[in-house]
Computed example of a mutant assay.
Amino acid sequence: MPHVHVRHYPRDFTAEQIRAIDDAVTAAVTRTFATGEDTVSISLEPVEPEDWDAHVLTEIAARRDLLVKPPGYWNEK
């Protein structure tokens, strides 16, 4: 039962963009996990830019062992 949670700066997505995200992420997850589309869930969570470091970057740093791809803007210390 894969779940993909995407946090991003706030923006308005069109229905077409949401469908494109759903299609692309679902295709990658079902292929990689060898599972059906009905087992995949996806959520989008907007995070204000001024809250990014405290809410997102802090978690990334604390859980770096889980990262598949670190952010290019992050200068690890």
Rank of each mutant, 00 (worst) to 15 (best):
residue 65 D to V: 01
residue 6 V to Q: 12
residue 67 L to H: 02
residue 8 H to T: 07
residue 36 G to Q: 07
residue 67 L to E: 04
residue 42 I to P: 00
residue 10 P to K: 13
residue 30 T to M: 10
residue 14 T to Y: 01
residue 12 D to R: 05
residue 22 D to F: 13
residue 49 P to R: 09
residue 69 K to F: 09
residue 67 L to K: 05
residue 74 W to N: 10
residue 12 D to P: 00
residue 19 R to F: 07
residue 73 Y to R: 02
residue 70 P to D: 14
residue 17 Q to K: 06
residue 1 M to Y: 14
residue 25 V to F: 02
residue 27 A to I: 07
residue 18 I to F: 03
residue 10 P to V: 15
residue 8 H to R: 08
residue 36 G to R: 08
residue 3 H to T: 09
residue 46 P to Y: 09
residue 22 D to H: 10
residue 50 E to I: 08
residue 5 H to V: 01
residue 4 V to S: 05
residue 34 A to D: 15
residue 29 V to S: 11
residue 73 Y to P: 07
residue 30 T to G: 11
residue 34 A to N: 15
residue 33 F to A: 13
residue 77 K to C: 13
residue 49 P to L: 14
residue 71 P to C: 05
residue 39 T to M: 12
residue 2 P to L: 06
residue 53 D to S: 14
residue 36 G to F: 01
residue 73 Y to S: 09
residue 76 E to C: 08
residue 72 G to N: 15
residue 19 R to Q: 09
residue 45 E to C: 01
residue 52 W to H: 03
residue 37 E to C: 05
residue 1 M to T: 13
residue 16 E to G: 09
residue 25 V to P: 00
residue 53 D to T: 03
residue 1 M to G: 14
residue 36 G to L: 05
residue 59 E to V: 07
residue 53 D to P: 00
residue 27 A to R: 07
residue 42 I to H: 11
residue 22 D to C: 07
residue 38 D to V: 01
residue 26 T to D: 14
residue 16 E to V: 04
residue 2 P to Y: 13
residue 74 W to A: 09
residue 27 A to E: 03
residue 39 T to P: 08
residue 11 R to V: 08
residue 69 K to D: 13
residue 74 W to C: 07
residue 1 M to P: 12
residue 31 R to K: 09
residue 20 A to R: 06
residue 64 R to C: 02
residue 3 H to R: 05
residue 45 E to W: 05
residue 30 T to P: 08
residue 25 V to D: 04
residue 11 R to E: 05
residue 66 L to D: 10
residue 72 G to P: 02
residue 4 V to W: 04
residue 61 A to C: 06
residue 56 V to I: 00
residue 47 V to Q: 07
residue 68 V to P: 06
residue 15 A to C: 04
residue 44 L to N: 08
residue 15 A to M: 09
residue 30 T to Q: 02
residue 75 N to G: 08
residue 66 L to K: 14
residue 33 F to L: 06
residue 19 R to E: 12
residue 46 P to Q: 08
residue 5 H to C: 13
residue 30 T to I: 07
residue 61 A to E: 13
residue 35 T to D: 12
residue 17 Q to M: 08
residue 50 E to A: 15
residue 36 G to Y: 03
residue 17 Q to W: 12
residue 74 W to K: 01
residue 25 V to Y: 01
residue 55 H to M: 12
residue 62 A to I: 03
residue 42 I to G: 03
